[in-house]
Design a protein around this nucleic acid. Sequence first.
DNA 1: ATGCCGTCTGGTAGACGA
Length: 259
Amino acid sequence: MRIATWNVNSIRTREDRVLLWLDEHEPDVLLMQETKVVDENFPREGFEERGYTLALHGQRTYNGVAIASKLPIEDLETGFPLADDEDARGIAATIAGIRVGGLYVPNGRRLDADHYQYKLRWLDALHVWLRETGDPAAPLILAGDFNIAPDDRDVHDPAEWQDTVMNSDEVRARLQTLLGWGLTDALRTVSDEGGIFTWWDYRAGAFRFNKGLRIDLMLVTDPVRDRIEAVTTDRNDRKVRKGVEKPSDHIPVTLELRD
DNA sequence: ATGCCGTCTGGTAGACGA
């Protein structure tokens, strides 16, 4: 089974690129973030032609999360983990016996912004959601754009990025709390290397200089960890390509599991 | 670096992203 997560930064702008990627990689499940479109305007056709069923939790202009799956989607839940969240940032379903959550964690903007306090509240609520609805002994994948670089290996230049909303002690501690509940950062089961990034700023030639961060994560419980065959990222997915010129600023992360 | 680039909007400049 192959399951991927991708912050597509607008599904309407990225449709051709996402569909091409699906044709090339044929994942069973793709979790998408920042779809930036209300559900009735989601470009469904290309996904459905390829045999994917869609589950949508969209929103105008900002945020928006979605699941595309070739396998049946059961027990859909949206609008978590914060009960009164005005932003569409969480979608979960059971697919092939695995509880799969697709998340778009708030960015935080600046350490002194209200939005950063919202990010911390959101992460606290995610821990509560795990405790109340989850089971560390059951198959679970929590994946998406966490807007947290887990440690300095995941930051191209830790000095340049010191004390930002992506790597503050507070957000890293909250990630550790999630891991402490019973999750493993899937990428770290296959590599200890630094410099594996999933996001590069559009600005200032960040990709050209490989000034990236690893902020798109797949966290898994032990029953899933024991099935990991591979966790892959591909820098080429950040490049301009003929026919699909415009890349997202994020690349997909793919988790391959043994049956 | 207030900047850069890209996306969105009852838009055409400003908000937001990370």
